[in-house]
């Protein structure tokens, strides 16, 4: 079955990215297909490359990236939500002349239409909110 997942909470102040990762792993293990992963609202913080949780805590951003890359997932970060919260790739950093960029590899910045599109093409759409 085709699934689309949306994540609306950040690793530092919600459990949403963690619950979503548990769910995504179970989906893949059962042979389901994840047609789109969409990070919106504070969920865009999951895609930052520069958060450093203390060593005795798991690095969810890193775990998510490894999962996305291992399964070659279509992982989209909402561009408007990301810009508002300081998550940018090289192109946006150049466009706004920012001092750096921090979007992890494996993610694409794109519009909200990708969330809609993902939900419409999937058999099931699941949101992990905060």
């Amino acid at each position: 079955m085709k699934f689309a997942l949306a994540v609306y909470g950040a690793p530092a102040n919600s459990q949403a990215p963690q619950s979503a990762l548990h769910f995504a792993r179970a989906l893949v293990a059962q042979g389901h297909e994840i047609v789109r992963l969409f990070f919106y609202q504070d969920g865009v913080n999951t895609a930052t490359a520069i958060a450093q949780p203390p060593q005795d805590e798991s690095n969810l951003s890193e775990e998510w990236q490894q999962f996305v890359q291992a399964h070659n997932l279509d992982a989209v970060v909402c561009i408007a939500a990301a810009l508002r919260r300081g998550i940018v790739d090289q192109a946006e950093s150049d466009r706004y002349e920012l001092p750096g960029h921090n979007l992890r590899k494996g993610y694409e910045l794109s519009g909200l239409g990708q969330l809609l599109d993902g939900a419409l093409m999937a058999d099931r759409f699941i949101t992990f909110g905060a």
Partner: peptide
């Protein structure tokens, strides 16, 4: 927070499709 604004954006995107 941004939730109300970002929900509205979703409705506008959906309607514009």
């Amino acid at each position: 927070g941004q939730s109300a604004r970002e929900a509205l954006d979703m409705a506008l995107v959906s309607a514009s499709y």
